[in-house]
């Protein structure tokens, strides 16, 4: 097994607000294996997106990374800690869009309304490589064709408001992949789309990953999507990591009561009048808000529980 492309250790983020300090992330630890899809799951406010923004260093004031490290190991160059980079560091500008890029949740607003599609995609190339504008446009056209946009010549001079949501998300994906980044972060890329388009976009991301072999971090709250796309799963709750494992381990043999609760809360076939399971009732007396350090069960399998609660057959 090759070394992970990203190693996140004890990452902490705080937001200073008028009502006090919000600790958005505390002691977040996980690895992103090279060339595979890692899903981060959790409910709203669990810190999934904040984690992604940390990796891109997109946390804006009043938010601040207050501790921890994000070790990024590119294949071609020296590894470095993203969290420790100065704001003006060239490596940071190079990193964004060049080595790590991001697909956002809202395709309707993620593109500039007053710049044409071709220009926006080509700009990603021009930011990172010394090529002519024509060359950048040609490569942008290729990438757009690759993500399934037809009639490229005409579409490239069109503007985002002339595109549907699904088409825009394809553009955003093309923009993210056009510099062939090592890591692609997808922050709920299908949440704002309807179900059929959602399936198309998921297939597209999966196929592109198979082909380009880049590492993908896929953020979602939808366990169905996780089952469909992920190799590894990181479960987050209240800014902490509760459970880490392969998709099979986490979905088939969840250890943490919260993960079990999440799985039970998936809407299935129910009788009329039956209520969905809620997390509070399944967790019972194991208090999920008390932080416990992650215990390593096996390679790539960790859980945040007091030692006594770990099932005997899983104990290392």
């Amino acid at each position: 097994m090759t070394a992970p492309v990203l190693e996140i250790r004890d990452l902490a983020v705080e937001f200073k607000t008028d009502t006090g300090l919000t600790r958005a992330l505390r002691n977040v630890n996980f690895d992103v294996p090279r060339g595979e899809v890692t899903a981060i799951v959790g409910e709203s406010g669990s810190g999934k997106s904040v984690t992604a923004n940390c990796i891109m260093r997109l946390i804006q004031p009043p938010g601040r990374i207050t501790g921890g490290s994000i070790r990024f190991a590119p294949t071609a160059s020296q590894a470095f800690d993203i969290a420790a980079l100065e704001d003006k560091d060239e490596r940071l500008l190079d990193l964004r869009g060049g080595h790590i890029s991001m697909v956002f949740q809202e395709p309707m607003t993620a593109l500039s309304p007053v710049h044409n599609i071709g220009g926006q995609v080509a700009e990603a190339i021009l930011c990172h490589r010394e090529v002519s504008k024509e060359q950048a446009w040609a490569e942008a056209a290729q990438m757009l064709a690759h993500v399934g946009i037809g009639d490229i010549e005409r579409r490239m001079t069109m503007y985002p408001f002339e595109f549907s949501g699904g088409m825009r998300q394809r553009v955003v994906i093309a923009m993210a992949l056009v510099c062939n980044p090592e890591v692609l972060i997808c922050d709920e890329p299908t949440t704002a789309l309807d179900v059929t388009i959602q399936a198309e976009i998921l297939t597209l991301i999966r196929n592109l990953q198979d082909e380009l072999k880049n590492s993908v971090i896929f953020i979602t709250h939808d366990l169905g999507v996780v089952a469909q796309i992920a190799d590894h799963v990181v479960v987050m709750y209240q800014g902490r990591v509760l459970e880490i494992g392969t998709v099979r381990q986490v979905l088939k043999q969840p250890v943490h009561p919260y993960t079990k609760g999440l799985l039970k809360a998936i809407p299935g076939v129910v009788d009329p009048g039956e209520r969905l399971a809620t997390i509070a009732s399944v967790v019972g007396d194991a208090d999920i808000t008390t932080p416990f350090p992650l215990i390593k069960l096996s390679d790539g399998r960790q859980v945040s529980l007091p030692r006594g609660h770990v099932p005997a057959e899983l104990k290392p």
């Binding site: 891109m56 997109l58 804006q60 500008l93 190079d94 990193l95 964004r96 869009g97 060049g98 890029s101 991001m102 956002f104 809202e106 607003t109 993620a110 593109l111 500039s112 309304p113 007053v114 710049h115 700009e123 990603a124 930011c127 990172h128 955003v172 923009m175």
Partner: peptide
């Protein structure tokens, strides 16, 4: 300044000064 398209542009690696002048200022 905090619209998603500005964040997208920043995530793309656009330099800070150009970022402000090209995207939000234009609108």
């Amino acid at each position: 300044l905090n619209k998603p398209y500005v964040v997208t542009a920043r995530a793309k690696g656009v330099r800070p000064v150009k970022l402000v002048l090209k995207y939000p200022l234009r609108i």
